[in-house]
Design a binder for these strands. Structure first.
Lengths: 253, 253
DNA sequence: GAACGCAGTTCCGCCGAGCAGAACAGGTAA
DNA sequence: TTACCTGTTCTGCTCGGCGGAACTGCGTTC
């Protein structure tokens, strides 16, 4: 999305306010006003308008994100038919592996986590359902881009850039395209601390009839706990299997 | 929430727009403008501002609810610790019974569906995660109110009223309180077509250490398919069992 | 294939809604 | 008590959101 020609600043402000509440895990009027750079009376009016519809919740002297967002969020998620096909598979994969399992889709060149399931030993990460990430630095993103036309990938990289998240992030186009070729060949992607230090992932794409990726599934685990054997054998196989089941369910039903 | 003293009409309008998109399952600018009663240029500006942040998505000539809401919604849900404790139980209950299983919490005197899981034969309803309902007309709501101080219940009823949803809805305080007494005694609530014709539910409260309800779990099924034996024996037992497990998990961990 | 009708988008000028800032209310700490 | 935090209410100014008209571009229809 390019910048709107005539942005409605009031709307931007409201969204910003809610996002700040989320970020701070609950906040008061003054606290928010300081961050948004508007007077607290204005913030107060926004909050009360939002509260009236259940979009924020007043807990004493602190405001919290309201559950009304869940209605819209769950609806938006359900519209992706891939979610229905995948979420049971993601659950069982998490149970089998005991690790953190993710489902990612691409929207406007960015990756969005559609669903997560925690296994017994799952790592705690900064990811959450609905979170947006750049595609170039995650196993999930690379799995998707590996099964997209090279031209489209170039457009996405041009639009969103390839900033380094860790010292292992691939930040140049050329090696990145080489990596994508390899991913396409082997059918899965590996992320070795490219987005987060200490974290490795195996990710497999979910493709449609035309071999175009519409989503990706990954297992994330800490580098120090999972050795190469388990990583490249068990986990890789499990992820590929799950992705395959989802693919079948999605394309032929 | 009582009416804000100084509502921000622009915010209201934006939320209204998004809700309309959800209701219509995607809509165009003109279509929305007709319903909100503002010019389409204004609607257009709102939509583009929202789209810029991922809160709506442009699909050709039609706008859709964006996944950015999922981030806030999932966050809001996760803040209710009861969700973590309950959601696996709700899943297994759905699988075991094959029916629709719901998890409801109370916020500001209204019920909000926190989570749903569909079993194999689950009915398709008008409920969805994040949906708000009045407490007096659902099994879930009654299960919660049964384990709340009578005074608090009276306040809630006074604030939100007791409109009839079907011809079976209880619309007067006195019989309602009698019903709550019974619910408290037997430990579960029954809803026989009180919110929706043709639908019956068994609901059990999840209570905290002080025997105060913090949530409720229910199984919903069509009246014509489930006979009394299965309803009052199998389902009731299953729901009570699940609620109990959740209770333990929530209160002692 | 010209003409129409419908969509979304852009532009502009007016006026009312959102804002800042001050005053008020309530609660807590020194 | 005093001081200093909150959140809330109020008022008047002004700037941003709005309506409405103009523009664009895609399908349909004749």
């Amino acid at each position: 999305m390019d910048e709107p020609k005539h942005p409605v600043t009031t709307v931007d402000r409201t969204l910003q306010i809610v996002e700040i509440i989320q970020e701070l895990d609950g906040a008061g009027v003054s606290e928010i006003a300081a961050q948004v750079d508007v007077g607290k009376s204005a913030v107060h009016n926004h909050l009360n308008t939002l509260a009236n519809r259940g979009y924020v919740l007043k807990e004493g002297d602190e405001y919290q994100v309201g559950l009304a967002f869940l209605g819209l969020g769950a609806y938006a998620r359900k519209r992706n038919e891939i979610f229905d096909a995948a979420h049971a598979q993601v659950d069982t994969l998490a149970e089998e592996t005991g690790e953190l399992v993710n489902l990612l889709v691409e929207k406007n060149g960015m990756g969005i986590y559609l669903y997560q399931a925690q296994g017994e030993n799952a790592v705690e990460l900064d990811t959450y359902e609905g979170k947006q990430v750049r595609l170039h630095c995650t196993g999930l993103g690379k799995a998707i881009l590996g099964f997209r036309p090279r031209e489209e990938v170039a457009d996405i990289l041009a639009e969103h850039g390839m900033p380094a998240e860790t010292e292992h992030t691939i930040t140049d186009e050329e090696p990145f395209f080489d990596e994508l070729d390899e991913i396409r060949e082997q059918g899965y992607a590996i992320d070795e601390e490219e987005r987060l230090n200490g974290l490795r992932c195996v990710a497999a794409p979910v493709t449609d009839d035309d071999d175009r990726a519409i989503a990706a599934i990954s297992v994330s685990c800490p580098v120090h706990r999972v050795d190469d054997d388990r990583f490249y054998e068990d986990l890789q196989q499990a992820v590929l299997g799950a992705a395959n089941v989802v693919e079948l369910e999605h394309n032929y039903s």
